[in-house]
């Protein structure tokens, strides 16, 4: 599996309240959530994001509330992957559970600039920066999580094992 798109850069501690403000949480519609994604931090996000684009951020991405609406909104915006120096743990679980690709790489998060064209090979965990002609290695998922993703996410994996 591969992803390709332009980098949209944010800083440290991007919390789930700015990813999707609580005033929109009464809905569960991915499209409706995507329409308000990041709006308190970056009013132009929804206008500039293109399918395949990649969010690149600093430490503790997705901190705060456990709302699964946050990774749902990001995915429905067309974002193909979030690369960060580190993730808040509930967001990390949620992203995996709903099928939003996430990668941890301090080096990539440091080096990638806004607008860089990126290509990610999820099988090898290698992030290629086509603009800068650079490569970065991301932390691979632990085997247990990789298995879960391969089975189609958490619900599919437990449904398979329910027997």
């Amino acid at each position: 599996m591969k992803a390709q798109g332009k980098a949209i850069k944010y800083g440290d501690h991007i919390d789930t309240d700015v990813i999707i403000p609580a005033r929109y949480l009464a809905t569960q519609s991915p499209e409706e959530l995507a329409a308000h994604c990041m709006e308190d931090l970056d009013r132009h996000f929804t206008a500039r994001v293109k399918t395949g684009d990649i969010i690149v951020a600093g430490v503790n991405f997705g901190c705060g509330s456990s709302r699964e609406h946050a990774p749902i909104a990001i995915r429905a915006s067309g974002i193909s992957c979030v690369i960060a120096k580190s993730f808040a743990r509930i967001f990390y679980r949620n992203a995996i559970n709903i099928g939003l690709a996430i990668l941890e790489s301090e080096q990539a998060a440091e080096d990638i600039a806004e607008g860089d064209e990126l290509c990610i090979d999820f099988d090898t965990g290698v992030i290629t920066n086509l603009t800068k002609n650079a490569h970065y290695a991301a932390q691979p998922f632990p085997g247990f999580i990789a298995d879960m993703i391969a089975k189609g996410g958490l619900m599919a994996s437990i449904a398979g094992g329910a027997g």
Partner: peptide, 23 residues
Amino acid sequence: GADSHSCTYGALGAFSTGVGSTD
């Protein structure tokens, strides 16, 4: 608990943590 503040019950000496809706 599908609420990040589910860690509250640690006050009682329980293990309790927040998760998302799918969990």
